[in-house]
Design a protein around this nucleic acid. Structure first.
Lengths: 193, 193
DNA sequence: CGTGCAGTTGAGCAAATTCAACGCTTGTGG
DNA sequence: CCACAAGCGTTGAATTTGCTCAACTGCACG
């Protein structure tokens, strides 16, 4: 059920203000959801990896946009159907409720992240990604430094500097800029307050 | 329906980790919900004013605590009843969904607040409070500077300094520390990006 | 009339940002 | 196949913002 759609890098899946009519599940790639302030500052609210669901939005209109961070395939399910059926199908309503609740949890965690120091934010981010990827010690970063910065509420330079700092303290190793090896989990966890 | 309970200043309504069995509506006063990091840093996730509902939590356990900012009366409704009835009562399920959705919206806005500058955070906070209170130009602050700081992700000194800065630029006036007059809304709105 | 708490103010400091330059990789056209 | 441009990431120096630490004020309450 639902239709498979492929998006290129940075291609928009939906925009802020558009009607929220679909629910999506990532099949491959990575999708970011963003909100943008009037003056152009961007906040990335979430990264959705394969298996993750996105597109559930407060209200009838999307309050954020969604774009593919890398070429991605997503499965779209028409939401108007879901919405109207939820009124008569309690099981479906509960399922949607569960999605909203999970989204709420993630958003709360994200807000909490934003009061931490730069090092703590980066460490938390890496550990979170590691938990979501199967691999235990290596993390592949499907997103650019700019996207990480916009997710963590930092600048691209600070993210870069913090990563090299973590590398210099032997907490991580960076074979390439998109691959991170977590050499010393305890020292990362110590920063994950 | 539900029972009325009165809480004193700083009295706990529920704690982090407790079973989430009730939904609450504020009748009078002001309730804060908090999360605390291991090292003691506190984030206030929300302030609930009369009429607001709080206590809806991801999962079975509260991920945040709730305390009265000032002496407050709240109406508590047993949640297990709600939860079980939501499975068979679609209208109730939709109502709960609406609450979750609204909570999600507020949490997203809070996260977005945390990437702004100190001035912008304070201005946004004041305008938000003004919208929620009936009075158009005067805002009463039911919470302390420390609570405002923990909500905005700033220190108490920065909040204080920013308020006096806004006063010096004639954007607001502070007859007492707990009362704010919004003299110049446009200049505040300009900071509300 | 003190005592204690909440809020303000000041000075110095630390963390992160800004601005700028540089290096590496990748892809493209000669 | 090489040269070169473009994009992304890193690094450095200077600056800014907000934090820390400390003192001080005003007010409420005994």
């Amino acid at each position: 059920m639902g239709s498979l759609i492929a998006y290129g890098r940075n291609e928009e899946i939906y925009g802020e203000g558009e009607a929220a009519d679909f629910l999506y599940r990532v099949k491959s790639g990575c999708v970011r959801t963003c909100r943008v302030l009037k003056d152009g500052r961007r906040q990335i609210a979430s990264f959705s990896l394969p298996g993750d669901v996105f597109g559930l939005t407060p209200g009838e209109e999307h309050t954020s946009s969604a774009e593919a961070s890398v070429p991605s395939e997503v499965i779209a399910v028409k939401g108007s159907t879901l919405r109207s059926r939820a009124g008569v199908d309690p099981a479906l309503a509960i399922l949607l409720m569960g999605l909203a609740i999970a989204e709420l949890q993630r958003t709360q965690d994200h807000a909490l992240l934003l009061i931490k120091s730069a090092q703590e934010r980066v460490a938390t981010f890496l550990l979170d990604l590691a938990k979501r990827e199967a691999s235990n010690i290596e993390v592949r970063l499907p997103m650019s430094r700019q996207e990480i910065a916009d997710y963590l509420g930092l600048t691209i330079e600070t993210v870069s500097r913090t990563l090299t700092l973590l590398e210099n303290t032997a907490a991580i190793s960076l074979p390439t800029s998109r691959r991170v090896i977590l050499c010393n989990r305890p020292s990362l966890s110590k920063m994950n307050v």
